[in-house]
Design a protein around this nucleic acid. Structure first.
Length: 199
DNA sequence: CCCGTGATTTAT
DNA sequence: TAAATCACGGGG
């Protein structure tokens, strides 16, 4: 399976673009669940507000963000939700890409079982907390190496980023507190698909 | 609109 | 040590 095609050590904007349209695979009880990556956000690292690594912050929670490209950073927030990031850059950079929405492909029945509130396919993974619930990802999935893990990895659907005309850019969701950085167009969406967050 | 829920961060 | 915050989701 082609899973070493992504240059995870690139900057987070490049990694974000390259992840769009690729297939995220989660193996659960020996069975693959898979979904196309439709919406991502880039988090630029230590110098930039809105990043968990702002000001070089380094704690038990965000340690994996410094591991360098290809690792996972899964954090717990609002007392009940987990969010999945793909770490980018070089070790120490503290940059990452937040996965915000997926289009379910394989194992939708298993996803519905974990997402009682979902009524239709586009409810399963249309948000960062929803997709971790659908794919059974929590802090135990933090610090995984996507290049070698057999439980979580990205499969190549296409070389390189999608054509630019198929990608929309907007400000990131939920970072209004971070001043001028909140306006930057760091959210990337595959155009014309219903599987995005904030429907 | 508002609230749950608890780890992390920030203020005192 | 106490209070506020939070890269959210679900139900009105």
């Amino acid at each position: 399976m082609p899973r070493r095609f992504l240059a995870y050590h690139d900057d987070p904007v490049t990694v974000a673009r390259n992840l769009l349209g690729q297939r995220l695979v989660r193996v659960l009880d020996g069975r693959p669940l898979s979904a196309i990556i439709d919406e991502v956000e880039a988090y630029l690292g230590a110098g930039v507000r809105a990043a968990h690594t702002f000001n070089g912050r380094r704690t038990d929670r965000n340690e994996s963000m410094y591991l360098g490209g290809g690792f996972t950073y899964v954090y717990f927030t609002y007392g009940m939700h987990h969010c999945l990031n793909v770490v980018s850059g070089r070790p120490g950079d503290g940059t990452a890409v937040l996965l915000r929405a997926l289009e379910p492909v394989e194992g939708r029945d298993a996803m519905y079982a974990r997402r009682p509130a979902a009524r239709r396919d586009h409810d399963l993974c249309s948000g960062p907390g929803k997709l971790t619930q659908a794919l059974a990802l929590d802090r135990t999935a933090d610090r995984l190496n996507l290049r070698t893990s057999r439980e979580l990895f990205v499969e190549r659907v296409r070389w390189g980023p999608p054509p630019r005309r198929l990608v929309a850019r907007t400000p990131r969701i939920g970072v209004d507190y971070s001043g001028p950085w909140a306006k930057r167009l760091l959210r990337f969406i595959l155009r014309e698909n219903p599987h995005v967050s904030r429907r």
